[in-house]
Simulated assay, not measured.
Amino acid sequence: MFNWKVIEDIVGPITEKQKKQLVDYKNLIQEENKKYNLTTIVLDEEIFWKHFYDSIIFSQDFKLSNQFILDIGTGAGFPGIVIKVLFPETIVTLVESNNKKIAFLNLVIKKLELNNITTSSQRAEQFSIDNKEKYDIVISRALAQLNILLELGVQALKINGHFICLKSKNAGTELSELNGKECAIGLKLVKQQNLEIDQLGERVNLFFEKVRSTSIDYPRPYPQIKKKPLGK
């Protein structure tokens, strides 16, 4: 059903257990999506490419091991749960403010028997403040534009840690609107991964490194961030 080789080309050999976990995850998405809206992507092939594959292609250019990873605005678990399944040595926290999605995430964690993965329904900016410089990696996919996203999660990131933003063709515009102001919160853009994939289209994954501590002035309350994002 799934083209496991394209996954293995990125992460290396995967076990039958991992394959089963991803199939079970796919089934849970399809079953629970009938009760409440988790995603508009529900066909087998689309889930594989647009959720599972898209969640881990960044790791072609970034080594994952036993890092502490924070996935903010994870939704139905992308990329955090996929990372946890394929890189089981990671320690993952999923932040999602929608309580129905939190219930779904907890169900997936239980059914897939995943360890060292937790959920939080706190808003991302508050969670970041409460967990200052705890995480090696902060990652997010399709949560918000860069000039909002980076401010929301930056406090949780360790110095020398990486903020990974999984983006699409609009990444160039978002970088322009950020206007280099990532430096104001202690970040530096160190890598850009540009990909063109038939099943996904254009993907642009951005890697920021935290080069110094972030001022306690950030993140600002969300209404302020929304009204005047970084760079504007």
Rank of each mutant, 00 (worst) to 15 (best):
K191L: 10
Y135N: 08
F163W: 06
N106G: 02
G172F: 12
T90I: 08
P221T: 09
K100P: 03
A171N: 13
N170V: 15
S65N: 11
E177S: 11
V92R: 08
K227N: 14
N116D: 10
K20C: 03
I29M: 07
F87W: 01
F52I: 11
L112G: 11
L230K: 13
S213R: 13
S121L: 04
T39I: 03
G77E: 01
L146G: 10
G172E: 12
I10W: 04
N205L: 09
A156L: 03
L38C: 02
K181Q: 15
K169F: 01
L149M: 10
V154L: 03
E151K: 06
F68R: 00
K191P: 04
K191I: 04
E182Y: 08
K227G: 11
I129C: 00
I56E: 03
I129G: 01
F68L: 14
C165H: 01
E151C: 09
H51D: 03
L195T: 12
D61P: 00
N3S: 14
K111N: 12
L38P: 03
G80L: 07
F78M: 10
Q199M: 14
G75N: 06
I57Y: 08
N27K: 14
I225G: 10
K169Y: 02
Q67V: 05
K5M: 08
I137K: 06
I139C: 10
I185H: 09
S59R: 04
K132Y: 06
I197F: 11
K134A: 01
K227T: 12
N33S: 04
G75I: 03
I216C: 05
V82P: 05
D54N: 12
K101H: 09
K19D: 02
S59C: 07
V92I: 15
L146N: 09
D54E: 03
P88W: 02
I7T: 08
L166S: 04
I164V: 12
K167M: 04
W4T: 13
N66L: 04
C165D: 00
R141T: 10
K226C: 05
L195S: 15
V6Y: 04
Q224K: 15
N131A: 05
N194C: 13
I137G: 07
R123I: 01
F87A: 07
F87K: 09
A142R: 07
N131E: 02
I139Y: 11
D198M: 10
S120N: 09
E125P: 01
E32G: 05
A156P: 08
K101F: 04
Q18T: 07
G75L: 03
V82F: 03
I83C: 05
N99A: 09
T119Q: 02
Q199G: 05
I117W: 02
E174V: 12
P221M: 09
I225T: 14
F104R: 00
L195W: 09
E96Y: 01
L114F: 06
E151H: 08
E196F: 08
F62E: 08
I216P: 00
F68C: 07
L22A: 06
A184F: 14
